[in-house]
């Protein structure tokens, strides 16, 4: 699979451990190659409910419902999916609902596909416009501390917070054109 971390990278498994350590019980997602290993780990865990949504804004509303019911949830998505979430993020401001998001970047460092660039370049601005605290992780060793800060900010201060995992960490998808 392309645009996914190589097999030696440990952060996808470490992200799974991080979600468990923070008591996450619902994981909403639209798949992205960069999250594939983490998704497999979550699906193999009977104490985590993986909710594959048809559009990312469903995941935002799911996080609202989970918190109302006393469970912690997280949303995993690709940067394009952030655009699908914009108005639904109002729910967090309306109710002061924690909404942590872990976003794998496209249209970023070394992108090949022009279609990914518009939303990829707008991702951080769009999230921030909706009141989200955004941190980037552009080196593999930054992923876990950054994602942990995102979870803490969301659940301790009741707001949307996001970690953007840069394409420099993920590797750029090249459709076989590697030169």
């Amino acid at each position: 699979m392309e645009s996914a971390p190589n097999a030696q990278a440990t952060w996808p498994d470490d992200l799974y451990d991080l979600l468990k350590r923070h008591g996450i019980r619902q994981v909403a997602l639209v798949p992205d190659a960069g999250h594939a290993r983490l998704i497999r780990r979550c699906e193999a865990d009977n104490d985590l409910r993986v909710v594959t949504v048809t559009t990312e804004e469903e995941g935002v509303a799911l996080m609202q419902g989970a918190w109302l019911g006393g469970q912690k949830a997280v949303l995993l998505m690709q940067s394009s999916g952030v655009g699908n979430c914009i108005n639904m993020l109002s729910l967090s401001a309306i109710h002061r609902c924690p909404m942590p998001m872990i976003v794998t970047m496209r249209g970023d460092f070394g992108e090949f596909n022009p279609a990914q660039v518009p939303m990829g370049q707008a991702t951080q601005a769009v999230l921030e416009a909706m009141g989200t605290i955004v941190h980037r992780a552009d080196r593999a060793e930054d992923v876990i501390p950054t994602a942990e800060a995102t979870l803490k900010l969301a659940f301790n201060t009741f707001r949307p917070a996001a970690t953007l995992i840069g394409q420099r960490v993920l590797g750029a998808k090249t459709f076989g054109k590697d030169d």
């Binding site: 909710v51 949504v53 509303a61 609202q64 419902g65 109302l68 019911g69 108005n87």
Partner: peptide, 25 residues
């Protein structure tokens, strides 16, 4: 009751998250 003031299109998914979190309610 949770009467919504916004988040149009989110009601059913809020219900789903809530139902999964409180499976006996």
């Amino acid at each position: 009751n949770l009467p919504l003031w916004g988040g149009m299109g989110g009601a059913a998914m809020i219900g789903l998250g809530l139902a999964l979190a409180q499976p006996e309610v």
